[in-house]
Amino acid sequence: MSSHIDRPAATRGGVLGWLQIHLPKIVLSPTLAITGVFVYGFIIWTTYLSFTKSRMFPVTKWEGISPHVKLWANPVWEKALENLAIFGILYIGIATVVGLILAVMLDQRIRQEGVIRTIYLYPMALSFIVTGTVWKWMLNPGLGLEKLMHDFGWASFKFDWIVNSDMAIYTVVIAGVWQSSGFVMAMFLAGLRAVDDEIIKAASIDGASQPIIYWKVIFPLMRPIFLSSFVVLSHLAIKSYDLVIALTGGGPGYSTALPATFMYSQTFTRNHIDIGSASAVMMLITVAAIMVPYLYSELKAQKGVRQ
């Protein structure tokens, strides 16, 4: 299509004219090639490896579905999936609710809004490694919150989730929510600000109280933002790796293992590239199950607008 539009330039002839038509393609082609090889190429390569007998090094001999069978028989993988379910649901749910509440409160035209907004947004600027490390210190019974309370004289205070294998996954949720809810807040705040003032006035004259105005009129208008924050948070949850590694290292034992940490340890420390690849394929399928319907509905909506 672009060459069709640029055709008049070609009549100018010479090297310049040729460049004018082909420059965009020249500039874009390295990126395209790199993306093609390193993203899609390696997706295919990884998928292929998950059907081979690769151990420490990749081998190409076809093995069938046995790595997948082994994957699903592995108790650590089972635990990782269970953890992903707990972490994913709580992380997405709490971050959305907290973000929404923060946004609603900030929307009351309070003083120093800019400063407060920035403070809430800052955690998103940190890497998950930093977040994980800081929370590891704070939650460590020997030097964090528990020690602080003991020093204040509250000797019976106990908060040892991070070393408790039943509760450790919830500390990952805490750190994750802390990191992401500011970002969710920023998205909702933008949405709330875009609501027509007159609609709120109309609802107020109609006799709706402030909570009902939010619940019945404003929140339904936030539907696209709920959807995009769900998509962003869910793929962060599924990919989650660095947060767990920094916070708990997957432990105690393997009690906070997630699919991503499982994949890494199988592939690079336990010499099971085949099982690691199989788990990577599972993660890809999960992400795709969320993203494809989302992208499909987005593209359909855009097409609708253009018509």
């Binding site: 027509d196 007159e198 609609i199 006035k201 109309a202 609802a203 004259i205 009129v217 208008l221 539907r223």
Partner: peptide, 14 residues
Amino acid sequence: DIAMVFQSYALYPN
């Protein structure tokens, strides 16, 4: 006990 009609109509879109 008043009712108002707004310039942007202010209908509830949902």
